[in-house]
C-alpha cells in the first residue's frame, strides 16, 4: 500500500514533487499487481490542485485495466471532508459555490469537437464563480491550454479543477494532461534543448513551434503574460522532468526534477482579481 504524505508548509513545488512521486509509485504497483492501493490516513492537509495528478493517475490506471482501488481515507475529518468536496478520487460533476471539483476528460478520437464542447461547459461554470473583472482572461487561458492539449499532447485523460478564494480574491486553476509532455514532443520533432526545463522555456516563450508556421506558437506565451503581468499571478508548469515557476514580475525560475518525472504536462495558475475589468486584447499578439 502506498503511503500518501505531503510536506508541511505551502510550497507548491514540494507538494507537486510529492504528488509526482506518488503517481510513479502507483504506476510501479500497478505494473506488479494490477491494483491501486493508497493510504491517506495520515494526511494532515493538502493543497487541492496537486490532487488532480493523483486522481488522473487513478483514472488512467483504471482505464488500463486496474482490477481494484483500495483507498484508506484520512483520519482527520476536515481533510476527509475536503477531499470528498473536491471529488477525490475519481472526480465528480457536482461543484461548490466557489470551486469546480476535479473533472476528467477522456479523449474520444472520433469527436473533433469534444474538447471545444467540454471546455465551453467548464468555462461557463468557472466564470460563474469568479468576478467579472477577469474579463475574457480565463477563457483565453483555458482556451489556449486546451487547444495545446488537443493539438499536441496525444493525451488519454486530461483533468482540471479550479477554485475562487473570495477573501484572498484569487482564482486557482490546475490543468493536467497525461500525454507526451513538451520535452518528448520536441524530441519527436528534432527540436534541440538543454534539459527539460529548457524545452519548457522554448515552448512558453514561443521560441519554437512544432508546426512549420510563423503565425503559431503564441498561445502559451500570451497565457504567461496574461497570468503573470495582466493578473499579477503565479504560474507553475511541470512537463516530464522540467519545472518552470513564475511569480508575477519576478524573474522566472527553472528546475529539473532529480529522481521522478511526470508523464504529461501540468499547469497551475494562481490569478489575482484585477482592480478593474481586464482588457486581454492588449496582451494578445
Amino acid at each position: 500500500m502506498i503511503k500518501v504524505e505531503f510536506p508541511d508548509g505551502d510550497s507548491i513545488l514540494n507538494h507537486l514533487s510529492a504528488a509526482i512521486k506518488i503517481m510513479n509509485d502507483m504506476e510501479e504497483e500497478f505494473n506488479k499487481t494490477k491494483k491501486i492501493s493508497l493510504d491517506l490516513s495520515d494526511v494532515k492537509w493538502f493543497i487541492p490542485c496537486p490532487m488532480i495528478l493523483i486522481s488522473n493517475k487513478i483514472r488512467e490506471l483504471l482505464d488500463h485495466g486496474a482490477t481494484s482501488i483500495m483507498y484508506k481515507e484520512p483520519k482527520k475529518a476536515n481533510v476527509r471532508g475536503h477531499l470528498q468536496k473536491i471529488g477525490f478520487p475519481l472526480g465528480t460533476k457536482e461543484d461548490g459555490s466557489s470551486y469546480v471539483s476535479i473533472k476528467h476528460l477522456r479523449k474520444d478520437p472520433n469527436d473533433k469537437n469534444q474538447i471545444n464542447r467540454e471546455v465551453n461547459e467548464l468555462v461557463t461554470v468557472i466564470e460563474g464563480k469568479a468576478p467579472n473583472k477577469f474579463g475574457d482572461s480565463i477563457k483565453y487561458i483555458l482556451g489556449e491550454l486546451s487547444d495545446n492539449i488537443d493539438e499536441h499532447s496525444r493525451f488519454e485523460c486530461a483533468s482540471l479543477m479550479a477554485q475562487y478564494f473570495p477573501k484572498k480574491e484569487i482564482v486557482d486553476i490546475a490543468v493536467f494532461d497525461n500525454g507526451v509532455s513538451i520535452p518528448k514532443l520536441f524530441e519527436e520533432h528534432n527540436i534541440r534543448f538543454k534539459g527539460d526545463s529548457n524545452a519548457i522555456k522554448k515552448a512558453v516563450w514561443g521560441e519554437v513551434t512544432t508546426k512549420k508556421n510563423e503565425t503559431r506558437g503564441f498561445g502559451l506565451r500570451t497565457c504567461k503574460e496574461l497570468s503573470t503581468e495582466g493578473l499579477k499571478g503565479e504560474l507553475y508548469l511541470v512537463s516530464r522532468s522540467g519545472i518552470l515557476m513564475i511569480k508575477s514580475s519576478k524573474e522566472p525560475l527553472f528546475y529539473e526534477l532529480k529522481t521522478d518525472s511526470l508523464k504529461g504536462t501540468f499547469i497551475y495558475l494562481r490569478l489575482k482579481t484585477p482592480k478593474k475589468r481586464l482588457n486581454i486584447y492588449k496582451f494578445v499578439e
Binding site: N120, K139, L142
Partner: peptide, 16 residues
C-alpha cells in the same frame, strides 16, 4: 449551434 458560445480549438474549426 456548432461550437457553443466560445470557440476554443483549432480542430473544431478545421472539422467545421
Amino acid at each position: 449551434s456548432k461550437f457553443g458560445n466560445n470557440i476554443f480549438t483549432r480542430s473544431s474549426i478545421s472539422d467545421f
